[in-house]
Design a protein around this nucleic acid. Structure first.
Lengths: 160, 160
DNA sequence: ACACACGATGTTATTACGTAACAAGTAGAA
DNA sequence: TTCTACTTGTTACGTAATAACATCGTGTGT
């Protein structure tokens, strides 16, 4: 799993890849990858940043889908539940998943300057955390790991 | 730093300790540890769980303080900025800090059954995360680490 | 003493985020 | 066909957070 997101790459490609993966997964699991759901994922993937639910809703509404909050929240619930998108708690916002299907416990790298979001592996950190917690008798089931800082591009810009 | 919070202990003690530490810190830094701020911290410390801003506000209002949102949000801003309290992003809620002054990068252990919240060390996990991020050229400045699971008490109850 | 700057508190009003509850359409199984 | 399950759409509401402005008290400099 590579922390895509900060390097130049073809959005078109990673977008179609994500959508295709979702397509396959849904076909295999008998899930309905409906137009709103598909379009919501497309929008999320086409940006590599976290988007608020209402930002998404505005786009969906303008494209002829329902324009009320439940429309987008339901689509997001579906995408998140199935691992096609993630919620960034710190921002109350959502990102498309660029590693669909990959068995992942993701950690997020959020650039405070340009709002880009990348996913990276959280597994090693999770293991440590789990061990520490276990010492206290706490059984970790899930964890949110969200780092804030500067992405390569903005770092360069800052140094200049 | 010990993951207090799940074991029996004297709330009175850890509460007065936290308040005293804040007192000292404010005196040293020339900060105003005013009645609303003090009371807000007391309330947070007296529970070992995350409280919503509006829950706090209700208490404050009933005690003669202002009853509008900015009152509590400003107090919380002060407490968080100075390390006397923390925000739990996942819950949009706040907890009093039980390790005041300690140089900490805290991680939180949130019990999904009783809502108790404990703080534990995040440093080891942070280091790993920072290294991983650095590989991608990302410079981590801060990180939110929030684990959800079962605390010792609820774990026992679940097994019974 | 006076005027001023500063920080804290309080208010009203508004924005952002999220969900409950209900109506209606559509596709597949019995 | 009829029933069931699922999806989409709506209205209405609940919860979280902030903007903008008025007021007050304290300490400083004159």
């Amino acid at each position: 799993m590579d922390p895509i997101g900060f390097h130049q790459h073809d959005h078109e490609t990673c977008m179609s890849g994500g959508v295709a993966a979702a397509d396959d997964y849904c076909a295999a699991k008998g899930l309905q990858f409906t137009p709103v759901r598909r379009r919501t994922l497309e929008i999320l993937l086409s940006e590599h940043r976290a988007m608020g639910a209402y930002d998404l809703l505005e786009v969906l509404g303008a494209e002829g889908f329902g324009s009320q909050p439940p429309v987008v929240y339901r689509a997001l619930e579906f995408l998140v539940k199935n691992g096609f998108a993630h919620k960034i708690e710190r921002l109350n916002a959502f990102v498309g998943c660029v590693h669909p299907g990959a068995d992942h416990t993701p950690a997020f790298l959020i650039c405070r300057r340009c709002d880009a979001v990348a996913e990276t592996r959280a597994r090693p950190a999770m293991t440590l955390l789990r061990d520490l917690a276990e010492e206290a008798g706490f059984a970790v089931e899930r964890a949110v790991i969200e780092a804030e800082g500067l992405c390569p591009n903005c770092r360069e810009a800052a140094e200049a």
